[in-house]
């Protein structure tokens, strides 16, 4: 059984990796700094470790999907991230793609549930 769990872990990790990006983009129409984003995502049931999120934010910035700005007015300097115009465009398109994936997969899963006599 532990073998199956291990496989599930691995697959879930892969699945999550792709979806986190969409999750991050979805929250950045308002500027956020890294740790506020961790809690924001966590509150909505998307748990992401800071050690994963921080490098991801930097990568998205480098790809031009996010803009960033240091806020040094507060006691603690923080780097705020915000969707760039490309980022907005990409995010909108990703939402369309995501919905289409969800509906296709739902269709596949439900259909399989209908005829349980597969050779699996």
């Amino acid at each position: 059984m532990s073998d199956a769990n291990e496989q599930i872990d691995k697959l879930m990790q892969e699945l999550r990796r792709g979806t986190i990006t969409i999750g991050v983009l979805s929250q950045l129409s308002e500027p956020q700094y890294g740790y506020s984003l961790v809690s924001l995502l966590g509150d909505n049931g998307v748990d992401v470790e800071p050690g994963t999120l921080y490098p991801l934010l930097r990568r998205l910035e480098k790809q031009g999907l996010l803009d960033s700005k240091w806020d040094t007015n507060e006691a603690r300097p923080r780097k705020y991230y915000l969707l760039s115009s490309t980022g907005k465009e990409v995010y909108d398109q990703l939402c369309v793609e995501w919905r289409s994936i969800v509906s296709s997969l739902n269709h596949l899963i439900d259909e399989k549930g209908g005829k349980e006599n597969g050779d699996d």
Partner: peptide, 17 residues
């Protein structure tokens, strides 16, 4: 070239945590 910026951000993160 990235060191200082990342260091600063990490420091903030650790303090927040």
């Amino acid at each position: 070239s990235q060191r200082e910026d990342i260091a600063e951000e990490l420091r903030g993160l650790i303090e927040d945590m």
